[in-house]
Amino acid sequence: MRVYHASDCVVDSPDTEHSRDNLDFGRGFYVTTMKDQATSYAQRFMRRGRKAYVGEYDLDEGALASLDVLEFSSYDGQWLDFVMACRSGADDTSWDVVMGGIANDRVFTTVDLYFAGEITKEEALGRLAYVNPNDQLCFRTQRAINRALRFCGAEEVS
């Protein structure tokens, strides 16, 4: 399966070292199965006056079977709790790969309100119930990257 990563440079050797802390699924190398989603995200770099690239990788789905994988199929309570733990730096789990919906602009607003204590968990889940998740896969360990991802190429976004 092909997956995509947006960056301001070509990432031919992905790693977990260059990730920011406190992201949706924690520190790691993030990809998506949706090329248009990666391209849209890459355009954020262009708006900051930087170059933008979408890297393409081959995901060995068979290799995922040998890894510790957590998958969320919807924006539910478990997803919300996990994202909150990761974003607050309180996640202490050791998953190799986490897959599920991305907190895009619409979802982020709801998550942010919940995180700030301005809405209840039930209200947040009610707002998220009708949102179709985009997808993201977070490779949280170098072992997972080495086993499951192979760089295929990159194109500059213009």
Rank of each mutant, 00 (worst) to 15 (best):
K35N: 01
D81I: 08
D112M: 00
D68G: 10
M84R: 07
Y75P: 05
A52Y: 01
P14V: 06
R87H: 07
Q136G: 15
Y114H: 14
R150M: 11
D12W: 12
T32G: 01
D92I: 08
E156A: 14
A116C: 13
Y57F: 13
N134D: 13
R106D: 00
A65D: 11
T32A: 02
D68L: 11
G117P: 13
R150I: 10
R127H: 14
Y41E: 00
L128I: 12
R87I: 07
F151I: 13
V131W: 13
D36L: 07
T110E: 03
E56M: 12
E123V: 10
T110M: 07
V111R: 00
A38N: 04
R27T: 03
T32Y: 00
N134M: 15
V69M: 06
D96G: 06
Q78I: 07
L125R: 12
T141Y: 12
D15E: 10
D105A: 02
Q43L: 05
D112R: 00
G26V: 06
L70R: 10
N132Y: 14
A103M: 05
V54E: 01
F115R: 13
L137T: 14
N132W: 14
A90D: 12
L70N: 07
R27C: 01
V11G: 03
F25Y: 13
P133V: 13
G117Q: 11
I102L: 04
P14L: 04
W79N: 08
K121R: 15
T120N: 14
D135R: 14
A148V: 10
R47V: 02
A103R: 04
F25C: 02
V10A: 06
G89K: 06
G49F: 04
A42T: 00
D96W: 05
F115Y: 14
E17L: 12
M84V: 08
L137K: 15
M99K: 12
N132I: 14
Q43C: 09
Q78Y: 09
S66Q: 09
E155Q: 14
A116R: 11
D81H: 08
T109E: 05
N146Q: 15
F115I: 10
N146D: 15
H18K: 08
M99R: 10
S40F: 07
R127T: 15
L137Y: 14
G55Q: 05
G77M: 07
L64D: 00
T33R: 05
T109C: 01
V31L: 01
L64W: 02
V10H: 04
G117F: 11
A63L: 02
Y53A: 03
R27D: 01
F45N: 03
V69H: 06
C152Q: 15
G55L: 04
R127W: 14
L64N: 01
S88H: 08
Y53F: 11
S73E: 11
R44A: 01
S66E: 09
R20H: 07
